[in-house]
Simulated assay, not measured.
Amino acid sequence: MSPDILVVSLILAAAIILLVTKRLPIDVTALGIMVALMAAGLLAPAEAVAGFANPAPLAVGALFVVSRGLVRTGALAFVTPLTIKYTDGSASRLLLLTLAKDQK
């Protein structure tokens, strides 16, 4: 086994442990993986941040911010009882309600 594979395996094992135990927030763990790979010399800094050039991670991050805002402002406190009322607690009805489109 090459030293690079061993280092990546150790970083991966540490990341899995941190993600499962939630000792650190997920974002801190994710950035820690990137920093650890750079510190080990396995990634150049340009390679490490290349993923941020893609709009998909930024969109996912924005959705996390929006969802946290909806929870903290209480906007979901209004929607949740209505959703439970219309779906009767059924997962399949919830899926259908979520996918329903307004037909104007």
Rank of each mutant, 00 (worst) to 15 (best):
A59C: 06
S92I: 06
L97P: 02
S67I: 09
G61F: 14
T83V: 12
V28W: 06
L42D: 12
F78L: 09
G69M: 03
G69N: 02
K22E: 15
L43M: 12
L24F: 13
V60N: 02
D88Y: 06
L96M: 09
L24E: 10
A59K: 15
T80M: 07
A44L: 13
D27V: 07
Y86R: 01
A36I: 02
D27C: 00
L96A: 10
M34I: 14
V28G: 01
Y86W: 07
M34L: 13
A39M: 12
K22N: 13
L37W: 13
V28M: 10
L82H: 09
G69F: 06
R23L: 10
V20D: 09
F64T: 04
L19C: 04
G41A: 03
L19P: 01
V60W: 08
L43W: 13
I26K: 00
F52K: 01
V20L: 12
T87L: 01
A53V: 12
A62M: 14
R23F: 07
L96E: 14
L82Q: 06
A40N: 09
M38I: 11
L42E: 12
P55Q: 08
V20I: 15
A56G: 02
T21C: 01
A48W: 06
A59E: 14
A91L: 13
L58A: 12
A77W: 02
P55W: 09
V28E: 15
P45Y: 02
I26R: 03
A59M: 14
G89N: 09
A91H: 08
M38C: 12
T83S: 10
L37K: 14
V28S: 08
A30P: 08
G74T: 04
L70A: 08
F64E: 10
L70T: 03
T29V: 15
G32C: 01
P57M: 06
G61A: 14
L96K: 11
L18W: 04
V65D: 05
Y86P: 00
F64S: 06
P25E: 13
M34E: 15
A75H: 10
A75P: 10
N54D: 15
G41C: 03
L43K: 04
I84M: 11
V71A: 06
E47F: 00
S90W: 07
P57L: 01
T83E: 10
Y86M: 08
T29C: 07
F52Q: 02
M34Q: 08
I33V: 15
T29S: 08
N54P: 01
A39R: 03
K85G: 00
K85S: 01
A62L: 12
R93G: 00
D27T: 11
A77L: 05
I17N: 12
A44N: 08
T87H: 03
G61N: 05
V79K: 00
F52N: 05
I17S: 10
S92K: 13
R72N: 14
L24Y: 11
L82K: 02
L42T: 10
L70R: 01
V35Q: 11
L63W: 07
A44E: 15
